[in-house]
Design a binder for these strands. Structure first.
Length: 423
DNA sequence: TCTCCGATTAGAC
DNA sequence: CTAACGGTCTAATCGGAGA
């Protein structure tokens, strides 16, 4: 009996953020559309029409103002509440097609399809089902490793003939070679801009060349990750699916401000808000943090202004997830680094040395035990009555730093008050 | 010389 | 009209400090 190859599927939503907006605005289906990053900064999702016009991934929107005007590109702020909800719907449907699923990102999911006798039909079925039930178009790539599944997905997206589904396992060795020779190395998972350039110096420009390079010397030159990549390209599954999302080892919350601020009160207000968010994430994964970093930054693009980007690391004697404790230390840290006379554009907090809340023995001799109960109540109230129902006094009352979000669509699927009235 | 640490880099999305 | 370039996260690597 011949052993079946591993069949790993990678399902990727097409232009995900744009597709989410289009579900509720079918009039945009044939129009150029782009979605901006936080603070309405850069174009992070583009419809095919916008790509065709020449909107590059990640371009700052002020640099394409003329393009937007001349072609009537539809511009949206990011609506993460909507995208997260749509993502949940897509992921939940995909979970029906395999018992083993890894949700890799907001718009991507791996499925282990090994052992199914109907992989071809299964892939086609999920492809049709997701768009039917959610309105989000996807592409399905299948291969013997995650890296090849990703590459298959690239082929599915690129080749109209594939109709959105491509399985590299069904090709003869000769056919595989001809596919891989036509894909540049930069499309490989794990090969970014720098590696593409370095590889090119060694005469490696196509995926086929990379796959067939000598493993020992490539490992020496580029490290273990490169070795894994090459093995995966040869069909050896080195990177396993991770079904359970593991607890974060570091939690960052930071944001650029809508406009620069000069007073410590404004920065305090923002920082308190970021600490609240970070602490909530920490509690959500049942962790506590032993280290906190606070940083503030001036606007690095305004080079004519004086620049100042200090940070301070604060060890927490008692690791905690208590917003009040963390806020107190963060604000003390801020005092120590803040200098008047600068215009600050960004601030943030980093929680690290994270460990499980239940395993920590605690300080038996602490005079005042930490009040975790109050945090539980706060989280419950905010879950029940909406984010921000209860917050600490320092948190986000000034708003002077709030990010720009001028073109956000309604929260169609999660907020009664934002459902447009049909006419 | 070895190890540990923080900082930096590269990559993904 | 202005001013205008994102946010998290991980792993590898590097270089200095201290043992």
């Amino acid at each position: 009996m011949q052993e079946q190859p591993r069949s790993i599927g990678l399902i990727d939503c097409n232009n995900f953020y744009v597709s989410c907006e289009r579900v509720f605005r079918p009039d945009l289906l044939t129009r150029p559309v782009i979605i901006l990053s936080n603070n309405d900064g850069c174009a992070v999702s583009r419809s095919n029409e916008a790509k065709a016009i020449g909107v590059k991934m990640g371009v700052p929107v002020f640099k394409i103002r003329d393009l937007v005007k001349d072609h009537g590109i539809e511009v949206f702020s990011s609506n993460y509440v909507l995208y997260a909800d749509m993502s949940n719907r897509v992921m939940s449907i995909l979970s029906e097609y395999s018992p083993i699923q890894e949700i890799y990102s907001i718009d991507e999911s791996f499925l282990d399809l090994t052992g199914f006798s109907d992989i071809r039909e299964r892939a086609r079925a999920m492809y049709e089902r997701v768009v039917r039930d959610t309105g989000i178009p996807v592409c399905v790539g299948i291969g013997p490793s995650k890296t090849l599944a990703k590459l298959s997905n690239f082929v599915a997206k690129r080749h109209p003939k594939s109709n959105g589904v491509f399985n590299i396992n069904l090709l003869s060795p000769g056919q595989v070679n001809s596919v891989l020779t036509n894909i540049p190395t930069e499309e490989v998972w794990g090969v970014g801009r720098k590696l593409t350039a370095s590889l090119s110096e060694f005469g490696i420009d196509t995926v086929l060349q990379l796959r067939d390079a000598d493993i020992a010397s490539m490992r020496k030159k580029f490290g273990v990750v490169m070795e894994k990549t090459i093995r995966e390209l040869r069909g050896e599954a080195c990177i396993e699916l991770e079904e359970m999302a593991s607890a974060k080892k570091q939690i960052i919350n930071s944001r650029s401000f809508g406009k620069s601020v000069g007073t410590i009160e404004d920065v305090q207000d923002a920082l308190a808000h970021f600490v609240s968010n970070a602490a909530k994430k920490l509690r959500d994964q049942h962790s506590i943090a032993g280290m906190m970093q606070v940083f503030i930054q001036t606007d690095r693009f305004r080079t004519e202004r004086p620049q100042y980007c200090p940070s301070v690391t604060i060890p927490l004697v008692m690791p905690t997830a208590n917003s009040m404790t963390l806020q107190k230390w963060a604000l003390a840290g801020l005092e120590s680094i803040f200098r008047p006379g600068y215009l600050y554009k960004k601030a943030g907090v980093i929680l690290s040395e994270i460990c499980d809340a239940s395993t920590y023995q605690g300080d038996l001799f602490a005079s005042v035990p930490e009040d975790t109960e109050i945090m539980k109540v706060l989280d419950k109230m905010n879950a029940r009555y909406g984010k921000g129902t209860i917050k600490l006094s320092q948190d986000g009352s000034r708003q002077s730093w709030k990010m720009r979000q001028e073109k956000k669509s309604p929260e169609y699927t999660t907020n009664w008050d934002e459902i447009p009235v049909c006419v």
